[in-house]
Nucleic acid binder design. Sequence first.
DNA 1: TCGTAACTTGAAGAAGTGTTCAAGTGCTAA
DNA 2: TTAGCACTTGAACACTTCTTCAAGTTACGA
Lengths: 114, 114
Amino acid sequence: MSAIVPVPLYQAKAEFFRTLGHPARIRVLELLSERDHAVHELLDAIEIEQSNLSQQLAVLRRAGLVVQRREAGAVVYAISVAEVRDLLLAARAILAAVLAGQEQLRSELGGGAS
Amino acid sequence: MSAIVPVPLYQAKAEFFRTLGHPARIRVLELLSERDHAVHELLDAIEIEQSNLSQQLAVLRRAGLVVQRREAGAVVYAISVAEVRDLLLAARAILAAVLAGQEQLRSELGGGAS
DNA sequence: TCGTAACTTGAAGAAGTGTTCAAGTGCTAA
DNA sequence: TTAGCACTTGAACACTTCTTCAAGTTACGA
């Protein structure tokens, strides 16, 4: 019976995309969509301070995209929503299309500088 | 031969997602993925000031997601990358999964308040 | 039980975004 | 050629998000 404030759907979507709007968080999701990782493994892969990584993991946790568990003295993270991988793939496709479009535009403009 | 600075891919992805991280921009993309719209049509649908809408459209244009054309005295916008629709659908699926997960968690915790 | 490795948290200043206002541009039509 | 509609732009201030530092927690091992 909790009184959930009905956040408009398009606002929920915007918040969700903002959650993905950080390089470290993207990398975490990409790594986790391969397999579960302990925090220190992520740390080895990501070039960021531990406390900063922890902050970013907290953002992903609050958004409900990842879950945490403790295992043999380490904290292990996992993707909680399998569809995340599809989203990352869709994003990759768009990005490729956009970048290709920009490249084409650039050459149509005569190969000039930026 | 333009000297393009090689932005790391995961940073480009993050920027891309941030572009989507605004309710008005999401609505614009949803409307445009149905059909092309003139600015004043978007304005009728979105409850936002004209200059603010214009700012948001500029963000989408800079990101290369929409294109502008002039038609009979009006400015008409269109999606430039067809895959945007797939992305919005993928996002909807994740959002549904995440919200369902939260709802389940809430009930497991005993139906308490937030 | 003490030390240490592995994380998380809170807080504060820096950096980045969003909203709004005023002014400007580009058509079209009288 | 001038009026007016449709839209864009620049700039300023408010607001949010990031990064970093210092302090705190948890669990294992000596």
